[in-house]
Structure formats: structure tokens, C-alpha cells
């Protein structure tokens, strides 16, 4: 008999050692997230998956499920706070959805839709960030980077390459690449890398593949991210693709 906890009143079974996020996902319950990806080690930085665990707030992706715990996620208060986090991500970067190849397939957008975000609300920072188009197949568009480190983890843990890293700190933190020139072309990054497909936004995106799906038929045009299957589809089938 497996152990259980409750998530918004629903009984969720879990295996020993599983996080709240893992157990919820297995049970088909969506908890908003951006830096989490089932393939990779939990990161816990975006904080969108913050849930109330017996009254204490914690990230669902890093907190382990425990027998009998009472977890709340889909509350108005939590979703309002999550909306503020998404708004923070929008104003700290330069997210111009109308001109972005990832639009319609972007998880940042999709989470915004899911949470009913109508405005980024906070004053925009309009930071000056570099765009790196040096690589023959891939574009590095730092204006859209939300520092989730999925590419860092994918390149290090799956591709065994360490193409990406985070440089600087605080609001000046930025995605850096493994080359003295700072150019993606001077790394061993390849379009076939796992790191090439995990970006939840349009920060790391394939060249020459933009706007291939008409508006209305893109991944999140008709269906909320909460309704879609949680595991990423393989290459070319959409979710990680531009």
C-alpha cells in the first residue's frame, strides 16, 4: 500500500523519496512551474510551484512528499502570488511576444495565460542584453532568458558538455557560454543536444524554424498548459520546439 498526501483535498499517492511535484504530476495534477522538468534534477529557482505545505510555503519541486501532509496549490492567494512572479519575470527581461518565434509554444506565456496575467504590472527594467546569432543552427536570445538553468542542466547532465552557465549575480545574473569569446559558435553546442530543446521560452531557439505553425494551431493557443500532458514531447513534436 503506497503512502498518500492530499493536494487541494485530492488524495495523491506517492513513492518514498518523491517530491510533491513528482507525485502530483504522476497523478495528473498540474502545479504551475517553469524551472522544473521531470528529466532533470529539481532546481527550485523560479518559485512558481510554491505551495502551502501544512500552512508553510515551499516549492513543490524540491519538497518531498510525506505521509498525511496537507498541500494546497490551486488557491486564489497562491495563484495571485504566482502571477506576481510571472510578472517579475516579464519585466526583468525583454519579452516581446508579438515578435517572438516561440510565441504560442512558450511556457512563460502559457503559465501567464493559465494564471490569467493581463499585464506585467511592475515597471519594466528594459535591460540591455546580448543576442548571440553566431551559431549556425541555434540562436541565443538573452532578452528572453528567465534563468531557469534547464539548458545548464541539460548540457551538463545529459549532453556532458557544459555549454551553458550562469554568470554574475542578482539582477545582473546572465546566461553565459563555455567560450572565451563568449560566442555560442565557439562552444561545442549542437542542434542535436538535449540543451537545444529544453528552453521553456524563446531564449535558445532553432534558426530558420520560426512561425511554422499558424496562429490558432500552436501548442497553447487552444489548450491551457494545465490541460496538456506533462512530459515533453520528443523532438519536432512541439513542446520544446520553436
Amino acid at each position: 500500500m503506497s503512502k498518500t498526501f492530499t493536494l487541494d483535498g485530492k488524495v495523491i499517492p506517492f513513492e518514498e523519496g518523491e517530491t510533491i511535484m513528482e507525485a502530483a504530476t504522476a497523478a495528473g495534477v498540474y502545479i504551475p512551474h517553469l524551472c522544473h522538468h521531470p528529466e532533470f534534477k529539481p532546481h527550485g529557482s523560479c518559485k512558481l510551484c510554491t505551495v502551502s505545505i501544512g500552512g508553510r510555503l515551499g516549492a513543490a519541486c524540491t519538497n518531498r512528499a510525506e505521509e498525511g501532509m496537507k498541500v494546497e496549490s490551486e488557491t486564489e492567494a497562491l495563484n495571485a502570488d504566482r502571477r506576481s512572479l510571472v510578472q517579475m519575470l516579464f519585466v526583468e527581461g525583454n519579452h516581446v511576444c508579438p515578435s517572438c518565434e516561440k510565441s504560442g509554444n512558450c511556457q512563460l506565456q502559457a503559465v501567464g495565460y493559465h494564471l490569467g496575467m493581463l499585464t506585467p504590472h511592475f515597471p519594466h527594467f528594459y535591460p540591455a542584453r546580448d543576442v548571440d546569432a553566431s551559431h549556425p543552427d541555434m540562436l541565443l536570445e538573452r532578452n528572453r532568458c528567465i534563468l531557469c538553468e534547464l539548458c545548464v542542466r541539460a548540457s551538463r547532465d545529459v549532453d556532458g558538455k557544459n555549454v551553458f552557465g550562469i554568470g554574475g549575480r542578482g539582477i545582473r545574473a546572465r546566461l553565459i557560454v563555455n567560450a572565451a569569446t563568449g560566442r555560442l559558435a565557439d562552444t561545442d553546442f549542437s542542434v542535436t543536444d538535449r540543451a537545444a530543446e529544453v528552453c521553456p521560452t524563446g531564449a535558445i531557439i532553432r534558426k530558420r524554424y520560426g512561425f511554422t505553425v499558424p496562429i490558432g494551431k500552436r501548442l497553447y493557443d487552444r489548450h491551457s498548459i494545465a490541460e496538456l500532458p506533462p512530459l515533453p514531447a520528443k523532438r519536432g513534436e512541439g513542446r520544446g520546439e520553436g
Binding site: C97, T119, R129
Partner: peptide
């Protein structure tokens, strides 16, 4: 009412911000 991306985020014209 702020109507549309530009009124809400600056939009395409805000590309010139940098």
C-alpha cells in the same frame, strides 16, 4: 483600458529601448 501589447508592455516600439 490599455489595449494591446504596446500599451501594456511597450511592445514592438520598445525594441528601440536598447
Amino acid at each position: 483600458v490599455a489595449m494591446g501589447s504596446c500599451a501594456i508592455t511597450g511592445g514592438i516600439p520598445a525594441w528601440r529601448n536598447n
